[in-house]
Amino acid sequence: MSSVAREWREIPGRYNLVGTKCTNCGRIFFPARTFCPDCRRASIGKIEPYALARTGTVYSFSVIHEAPDCNNMQKPYAVAMVETDDGVMIEGQLVDVDLEKIEIGMPVRAVLRKLDADGKAGVIHYGYKFVPQ
């Protein structure tokens, strides 16, 4: 069973794509970083929460046939690298999509879905996945 606290503390990112922004250089981070790798020391105290756009386009994708247990019910399933409208690259599953119609450049939108659960009795993990726009 995974740690409840570990999932809980990532809720802003998992549910709402909340990352951070370095107000010193303007770079956006997802997942959230508390320190800008470009500005380093100059970024201290200048990192603010930033919610990514929930829309973007597919930069690359794959259809997974050898799935982890949590996705066995959905295989084959698609994953994608998505460039959000803010220009930030993130990865996630692409669901409710005709697998043969996925293409690079396709517009997608983030939704909340079940990612996994700790067995039948443990907590359910929710987070973002993408659907065609």
Binding site: D96, V111, R113, K114, I124, Y126, K129
Partner: peptide, 16 residues
């Protein structure tokens, strides 16, 4: 519902 959908995800989509 798809296997990754439940009352939470449906309610969230509607609420959003």
């Amino acid at each position: 519902p798809s296997p990754d959908e439940d009352v939470v995800t449906i309610a969230t989509e509607a609420a959003r």
